[in-house]
């Protein structure tokens, strides 16, 4: 990771400039060129270190979402993970070390949309899907303080 990449990750997880040439503004702040900044972000994106440059929406702010979990028999986990991935309403889907071994976030325009996805996953997997909607947010993800080693 070079210095420009590190400074992009440290300084721009929030507060992205809302100007016509945002990458030029970032470049100005980091003493670089606009095209260097764009190139560095392309590189970080291709290597999977960043998933995108974009907006994170507050939960409950637009549409409806929930955290869902199910207990897949270990030999069926991959098959069920694939089934869950097939829904465009699912944006995160993780294995976790627990009896409830598959955890995923469902986001839809409204609560009915969330319910439909839960019902469909349950029907097609034959498993109970636990629906754990958020009631209160104490700390949103406002970026991540990276400790460079």
């Amino acid at each position: 990771m070079n210095e420009l990449e590190k400074r992009l990750l440290d300084g721009f997880q929030r507060g992205f400039p809302l100007t016509e040439r945002p990458f030029a503004e970032i470049a100005r702040q980091l003493n670089a060129e606009e095209d260097q900044v764009i190139g560095a972000l392309e590189g970080l994106s291709e290597s999977g270190i960043i998933s995108r440059v974009g907006a994170a929406f507050a939960p409950g702010g637009i549409g409806a979402s929930t955290l869902a979990a199910l207990a897949a028999p270990p030999e069926r986990l991959e098959e069920i993970a694939e089934l869950v991935n097939g829904f465009e309403e699912v944006n995160h889907n993780y294995e976790r070390e627990h009896r409830l071994n598959l955890w995923f976030v469902i986001t839809a325009p409204d609560r009915d949309g969330v319910d439909r996805v839960i019902a469909e996953i349950s029907r097609r997997s034959g498993l109970e899907v636990l629906d754990l909607p958020m009631l209160e947010s104490y700390r949103l993800n406002l970026g991540f303080d990276l400790q460079w080693s």
């Binding site: 997880q13 809302l18 960043i50 994170a56 637009i62 949103l140 993800n141």
Partner: peptide, 10 residues
């Protein structure tokens, strides 16, 4: 409504 705008790290 938007909690942050910027680089989303993995």
């Amino acid at each position: 409504i938007i909690s942050r705008l910027g680089v989303v790290v993995r």
